[in-house]
Design a binder for these strands. Structure first.
Lengths: 183, 183
DNA sequence: GGCTACATGTAACAAGTTACATGATTTT
DNA sequence: AAAATCATGTAACTTGTTACATGTAGCC
C-alpha cells in the first residue's frame, strides 16, 4: 500500500459539494457512492485533522451540551486546487480482488456441486443488491427535485445496476456450462 | 486490513492444480485469474515459507548452477482440507474502490468537459482490456485441447468480457446524459 | 426498554505495494 | 546489444480495518 491514499480526494470531493462534518462525509459516501467507494472513520477522522494542518480545509468547532463538539469542515481554495489537480490525472486502475470468483475458479478442482453453490451464492448476493438499488431509486425519484446533485447520484446508481445485471448474465452462462458438465 | 488475507487460499488453489514454484503461481494467476485476482511476490514468497511451517505444503529444493535454487511446492492433505474448508465458506463481499468512478462523480461539480474526459478515459481503458481479452481468447482456443482447466479459464475470461461490455454500456448512457446537460 | 442514529475519535494490528538486490538465459 | 523472462527473496513503508471508548437523542 505504498500507493497514495485516495481518502484525501474522496473527502475533498465531498467538501467541494458543501461544508460537512466527518460523520456526514461518511454518510453521504454511503448514500451516493456505495457502488464504487467506501471509507471508514478510522481513515476519515485522522485525515481531516491532517487536511486542516495542510490548509486544504478550515475547521469550525460547534460546541454542544452533553455531546461531542461538532466539527464542520470547509474546503479552501488550496483544497479546491488540489481536488482539481487530482481530477485531471488519469485514474489508477483499481486492484481486482473478487473472492467469490476466486472460489468459483478453484471450485473447478472439486465437485460440480461446489461450483453450483458458488454460482448460486453470487446470484443471491446480486439479487440482494438489486433490491437495495430499487429502494435507492425510489429515494432518488422523490428527492430529485431538491438535490442538484441527484442526476450524478442517479448515474452512479445506474453503474451499480448495470454491473449487477452483468453479473447475473455471467451467472446464467456459468450455470449452463456446469449443467452441461454434469450431464 | 485486519481482515484475514486471502493470499493463502489463492496459493492453495493454485497448488491444488499441481505442484509449482512461487514464480509459476504468480504467472498462472496472471494468465487465468487476472480479471478478478492479483498477488505480488512480496505476498507470495513469505506466505509460501509460512505454509511449509504450518504443513499446508511440502517443499522440494532443486539446486541449479549459477541460478537461485528452484523451490517446488506441493499441497499436503492438510492443505487440501484447508482449501476445502475455505471453499465452503461464503465469500467476503469485496471492498469497492473504483477511482475512475470517484473522479467521474466529483467531476460533476466542475465542468461538463471534465466529465466527458473521465468517461472517455474509462472507455479507452475498457477498450484496451477488451483487446487483451481477444488475445487471451485466441490463446485459449489453441490450448483448449491440452489443458483440462481451460474450460474454467474460459469462464473467467467471459467474466472479464461481460464486465467490460457492461462498463461500455454505462459509458454510453453517461455520455448521452452529459450531452443533454450541455444542451 | 431497546435499538438506531448522531457524533467524535484512537490504538493495535494486518495486509499489501514497491523498490531493491542478484544474476543467468532467451528472445528480438 | 538490449530487453524480456526466469527465479529467488527482503525491507521499508503506507494503507486500511476493527475493536474499543463515550454518551445523547429520538423512535418503535
Amino acid at each position: 500500500m505504498a500507493r497514495e491514499s485516495k481518502t484525501k480526494y474522496a473527502i475533498l470531493g465531498m467538501l467541494n459539494i458543501g461544508p460537512k462534518c466527518g460523520y456526514d462525509i461518511k454518510k453521504e459516501l454511503e448514500r451516493s457512492a456505495m457502488f464504487f467507494w467506501n471509507e471508514s472513520y478510522g481513515q476519515i477522522y485522522p485525515m481531516l485533522k491532517k487536511m486542516v494542518t495542510s490548509e486544504l480545509t478550515t475547521i469550525e468547532v460547534i460546541a454542544r451540551e452533553d455531546q461531542p463538539d461538532m466539527k464542520i469542515y470547509t474546503i479552501t481554495n488550496k483544497g479546491i486546487a488540489e481536488l482539481e489537480r487530482w481530477l485531471k490525472l488519469p485514474a489508477d486502475p483499481h486492484p481486482v480482488r473478487n473472492e467469490a470468483m476466486l472460489k468459483f475458479y478453484f471450485g473447478a478442482n472439486t465437485t460440480p456441486a461446489m461450483t453450483q453453490t458458488h454460482i448460486a451464492r453470487m446470484r443471491d448476493r446480486v439479487d440482494t443488491q438489486l433490491l437495495e438499488m430499487q429502494n435507492q431509486r425510489d429515494r432518488i425519484d422523490s428527492e430529485m427535485a431538491e438535490d442538484p446533485n441527484a442526476l450524478f447520484w442517479q448515474l452512479s446508481l445506474r453503474y451499480g445496476e448495470i454491473m449487477s445485471e452483468a453479473m447475473k448474465t455471467w451467472c446464467d452462462e456459468a450455470e449452463e456450462f456446469v449443467d452441461e458438465l454434469k450431464g
